[in-house]
Design a binder for these strands. Sequence first.
DNA 1: ATCATACAGTTGACACTGTCATCTGAGACG
DNA 2: CGTCTCAGATGACAGTGTCAACTGTATGAT
Lengths: 200, 200
Amino acid sequence: MIGMASRAESAAATRRALLDAAAELLDSGGPEAVTLRAVGARAGVTRGAPYGHFPDKDSLLTTIAAEALERLADDVEPVRTDPRMLAAEKLQRALAALMTIGRRQPHLYRLMFTSPVGDPAVVSAAVKAGDRAQGEFMAIVDDLVGGQDTRRFAALLLTSVHGITDMEVNGHLSEDKWHVTAEELVSTLVSMIDRQARGG
Amino acid sequence: MIGMASRAESAAATRRALLDAAAELLDSGGPEAVTLRAVGARAGVTRGAPYGHFPDKDSLLTTIAAEALERLADDVEPVRTDPRMLAAEKLQRALAALMTIGRRQPHLYRLMFTSPVGDPAVVSAAVKAGDRAQGEFMAIVDDLVGGQDTRRFAALLLTSVHGITDMEVNGHLSEDKWHVTAEELVSTLVSMIDRQARGG
DNA sequence: ATCATACAGTTGACACTGTCATCTGAGACG
DNA sequence: CGTCTCAGATGACAGTGTCAACTGTATGAT
């Protein structure tokens, strides 16, 4: 570091380094690779240091999931509020953002959709972040279907796209078995919901 | 045991006891509770005994998943071949069978939809079991949609219902947030697909 | 400028895990 | 009856999450 930091700043930097290190280990080696010793080493500290910033390992992982959910919400928000986009296009982009996480960071994706564990405060933060991301999706769907049965269609879309992504990530959607890509499934689903919402 | 067994029979019984013990521990305490020592103890044997029947812990877990998938296929098969049922009813029952596992044995459900790990032979057996279960669903959907776009609709149904179940299991589908039950979502989905398959 | 304090991070220890090499004892078979 | 085979027991080892005790340094009061 060029500008040396106050103690609080330095501690915050360590906390960030721990989160980044853990996230990197998760991405590259899966949950098995995320050991407090490895996290500490990669963050330039020792195995016990994380306990100064997180109550336990579960809370560290849950915090990573919460941050990823916040990031997702941050990515979707500008799409939702963009006045130059049609609702259908907004939805397509929002869903693509979700599926991209699944493909590029499968382990992180799993973490994001697993019930959070660890310290109650951390768990509550993760739930809040998840709610925010869900809220963004719901608002876009509401725009799309015009307020009619918003929750039902939003829930159906989100759960279905999650299922598609999750099964693809776990290798249960192999191209040569189903002769269908995840994108085709999503677009089929969206067009069906679109038709259903307009029609009767 | 009343009838004392030959050595081979006794070994087979131990293997079964190990699988049952592990499955019970998984159901009641989640993956964390499934330790080889606990499994051995519950099966009346010591911590090293499982290695006489399974190459490693992953293979033991994967075998449990494979058996669950076989059981699911065994449950769906008679439904599929029942000549007195309509295709729509068959589908409803098959999907209900899947969701019931998610609700009654959430940890087992997770295991069934996670990419299998462990000994190649065991993994391959699990994949085969999964394919059989998927085949049962696909056959029912084929019956329902009349051969038109079978794979597409079957894949969409299976992935969506999995997503619904998975999110419900992980607490991301709370009633007071979405105002929708999993059943409503599934029936909406099925009726949409039904309409789509008949219509244009 | 000096000193006491708070606190980030280190270190040693503990119970627990999966795994393997080795050993033991009882069923299988000549 | 004697030999062999193999299911299971046992001892050991490296690696894990976790905590209590310790250390050193930036902070803030005097």
